[in-house]
């Protein structure tokens, strides 16, 4: 078993209106960043998952997204396991 650092990205589905993203885009334009376009705002979650393998940690994280972390009606998610397993109890780097 090892503890894996998992990063989860949850984004509003591309086909749906993202008023928060639009508001941020307008603010960027007001500040002179005319080059900014298609701004979307989502969520980034970082968690530690204890699992036998990196693959198993990803499977568990995806299950967490299906059940709680993302709404299947409105959001898409991606999961990245970005640290190799380390012994339980030792601090994350």
């Amino acid at each position: 078993m090892g503890a894996f650092r998992v990063e989860i990205r949850v984004m509003p589905r591309a086909s749906l209106l993202d008023p928060q993203g639009q508001a941020v885009e307008h603010a960027l334009h007001a500040l002179g960043f005319a080059e900014a376009a298609n701004v979307r705002v989502g969520k980034h979650l970082v968690l530690e998952v204890t699992a036998p393998t990196k693959e198993e940690a990803a499977v568990r994280a995806r299950t967490m997204c299906d059940r709680l972390l993302a709404n299947p009606v409105t959001e898409d998610f991606s999961v990245a396991v970005d640290t190799a397993g380390r012994p339980e109890g030792s601090p994350l780097g």
């Binding site: 509003p12 749906l16 008023p19 009606v73 409105t74």
Partner: peptide, 17 residues
């Protein structure tokens, strides 16, 4: 009820924020 799947659909941020 929507989150629980007892009703269809979802409720998102008001368009005007």
């Amino acid at each position: 009820l929507c989150e629980a799947g007892l009703l269809p659909g979802a409720l998102m941020r008001n368009a005007g924020l």
